[in-house]
Design a protein around this nucleic acid. Structure first.
Length: 676
DNA sequence: GAGCACTGC
């Protein structure tokens, strides 16, 4: 069996397409994290000096002194995130109580990078070096000089301190770039580069640009992937201030990744992926395989097809150990992919995009890339969100390929022709262009950015999306008819939940059910509470859920599940037995206690409705009245707004039931295969 | 009768 791939040679077309980005350097990978005690300070210093960024130290510091905004471009692992804040501190940017902030798009990234840097600086985590993420503040107002935090956290700080006055330098990472970062669950679970810009990254950069005008001493550093650098440069420079920003480029060492393309497009990338993986096993030397597919369904089918090859295996051929990786798995299941394969066995990890941005697995030598990704799309005209399978960007394809070259040279098999690669968009459209903007606009208003036409967006959200958000805010009485924030709007802007939930919390005073609404608010905020078992239909999960099922619907079912979880000691084994996600439940506990603080601050009573479901339901309606729908005889629903035909989602308890009154309020509306 | 990319406050 031939692979039927075409490999562009050194002189072939496409060989210079993205040569530098198809290879990845690998510098820090041998340094384990939390074992700092085994390292002398001297060897840490030696390691630091070994990083590619070290020889750029003076160049960087000079440029930061000179330019207000620096866009730093460097390969994964060059040490930007860990070293640059230290250089700045050593150069005096953290003197006189000033703080150097470094934002990260992920919680894990913020905590693990902070831990690493604390070790390098020789301080306790939370003293001179600290981190702040939702639910966890390991920093000290007096002592902390280098602070790692999620971009959402720093954006939130602008609500309290609009000029972010305690910071001298703010380094915003639009990508996570550290090659040796240890995850809390395992010492091989690593965080790596993510190209996507979150809504918060965009809002934060917009606010920072504004702050720079009022406070020119503030320095901004944008850590960027190569493909985004010019976007940032153009954003920060203008005819008025051509000297405002500069790009600093850091080259690094890397392992080459050879890229192979299919000669013809394939109609079935799932089957092809299985076939290619099997051929790699027959024809190539040792090294694990990472397959990128779009979702759970694809992954399960691919694993099935792979298992059909296995009995055909010639006796002396390496055994294949197929594994799935997606966010729906439990933590234990996810951790399986990090367990090294036994001798004579090769792992094939079939994964969603989670392995592109959030998770790095060591030992991957072969990557198979289907060329697609599922992204969430929001249609502001219909206010419908949907998941769409779309071609990936060049940046994604590059990132995926790079997964093969972390520890040695590798090969990436793209399941599409080179001609298709050449037609891919360079980056995925930023989240701000494809998401509901209601909360974001409320928060912008709350920090005094009232005229959104004047706000300098890095990428503007679609006009219709802004309009839809205004409409929603007005209907919820968050703004008045002139677009000004109301008193309750001001308070709701502070709450870290969506507007409907916040409204519900505020209304609970009237219906005397704060205690229960608080739980429902927390439970609706976390997703994937009920585990759907692998393979066959969700019959088992449904059966388990019946124990919690409330005739009144999903909100009360969630309430029952949470209360039962609390009653039985919040244990993970109990969760397992009842097909509940322990991760989701624990998160609900944290969110609940955080929201409780907001309720106390706003003097909202925590009354219990004492089992009076009617009061609860009325409170739910007061928050979500715009999401009303009525049952019709054919089993579908009609929305109150727009009279649209709606179907109950299979994950709802009402999927198999008819509402007694004939009316429902729904939490969200999504476009699926069913409605298309 | 039918569905589950991924974060973050």
């Amino acid at each position: 069996m031939s692979l039927n791939f075409w490999k562009p040679g050194a002189t072939g077309p496409g060989s210079n397409l993205d040569r530098d980005s198809q290879t990845e350097e690998n510098v820090l990978t041998s340094a384990p994290f939390y074992s700092s005690s085994s390292y002398s300070l001297q060897s840490i210093q030696a390691q630091r000096e070994h990083l590619p960024i070290f020889k750029h130290r003076d160049k960087l510091l000079y440029s930061i002194e000179k330019y207000g905004v620096n866009i730093v471009v460097g390969q994964t692992g060059c040490g930007k995130t860990t070293q640059l804040p230290q250089f700045l501190r050593e150069a005096g940017w953290a003197s006189d109580g000033r703080v150097i902030a470094c934002t990260q798009p992920r919680r894990v990234a913020a905590t693990s990078v902070a831990a690493r840097v604390a070790t390098e600086v020789g301080t306790t985590l939370g003293a001179e070096v600290g981190y702040t993420i939702r639910f966890e503040d390991v920093s000290s107002k007096e002592e902390t000089r280098i602070l790692y935090l999620t971009d959402g956290m720093l954006f939130r700080e602008t609500l309290v301190d609009p000029l972010l006055s305690r910071y001298s330098v703010i380094m915003a990472s639009s990508s996570i770039s550290l090659s040796s970062c240890v995850h809390q669950y395992s010492n091989s679970f690593k965080v790596d580069e993510a190209h996507e810009r979150s809504v918060y990254t965009d809002l934060l950069l917009g606010v920072l640009k504004k702050i720079r005008r009022k406070r020119p001493t503030l320095r901004i550093i944008v850590s960027s992937a190569t493909l985004d650098a010019s976007t940032f440069l153009e954003y920060f420079t203008s005819a008025m201030s051509p000297e405002e920003a500069a790009v600093v480029s850091l080259e690094g060492r890397m392992y080459p990744v050879e890229v192979a393309y299919l000669c013809e497009p394939t109609p079935d990338y799932v089957g092809k992926a299985a076939e290619v993986a099997w051929n790699i096993n027959l024809q190539q030397g040792p090294g694990d395989i990472l397959v990128f597919l779009t979702g759970r369904e694809d992954i399960e089918r691919c694993l099935e097809e792979l298992s059909e090859f296995i009995p055909l295996s010639p006796p002396h051929v390496t055994r294949l150990a197929p594994l799935a990786l997606h966010a729906g798995l439990t933590t234990d299941e996810q951790l399986q992919v990090f367990v090294p394969a036994e001798i004579g066995t090769r792992k094939v990890i079939v994964s969603t995009n989670i392995a592109e941005a959030s998770v790095t697995i060591e030992g991957i030598k072969f990557v198979i890339d289907c060329g697609f990704v599922k992204i969430r799309i929001y249609n502001p005209t219909t206010a419908l969100a949907s998941l769409a399978t779309v071609p990936i960007s060049v940046a994604s394809a590059t990132q995926r390929a790079g997964r093969a070259g972390r520890t040695s040279p590798g090969i990436c098999y793209r399941l599409y022709p080179l001609s298709l690669f050449n037609s891919l968009p360079s980056v995925t459209p930023p989240e701000i262009t494809r998401t509901d903007m209601t909360t974001a606009i409320l928060q912008l208003k709350s920090i005094g950015i009232d005229d959104l036409m004047k706000f300098e967006w890095l990428t503007a959200p679609p006009a219709e999306s802004v309009l839809r958000a205004f409409e929603g805010l007005f209907a919820a009485a968050m703004i008045d008819d002139r677009g000004h924030l109301s008193v309750v709007g001001e308070q709701v802007a502070e709450c870290p939940v969506e507007v409907g939930i916040a409204r519900m919390l505020f209304q609970s005073k009237e219906f005397q059910c704060g205690e229960e609404i608080l739980t429902i608010a927390a439970m609706t905020t976390v997703q994937d509470v009920f585990i759907i078992p692998d393979g066959a239909p969700g019959a088992l999960a449904e059966l388990q859920r019946r124990k919690f099922t409330a005739e009144e619907g999903d909100h009360l079912t969630l309430l029952n599940a949470f209360n039962a979880f609390s009653r039985y000691g919040r244990s993970s084994t109990w969760c397992k037995a009842h097909a509940l996600s322990f991760r989701a439940m624990s998160r609900a506990v944290s969110i609940r206690s955080q929201l409780k603080k907001y309720m106390q601050r706003f003097k909202l009573p925590l009354d219990s409705c004492e089992g009076d479901a009617k009061r609860l339901r009325r409170c739910l309606v007061s928050g979500y009245w715009r999401n009303g729908a009525r049952w019709v005889a054919d089993g579908t629903y009609r929305s109150v707004r727009g009279d649209k035909i709606l179907h109950v989602h299979p994950t709802s308890v009402l999927f198999t039931r008819k509402p007694r009154s004939g009316w429902v309020v729904f939490h969200e509306m999504e476009e699926t295969k069913k409605t298309q």
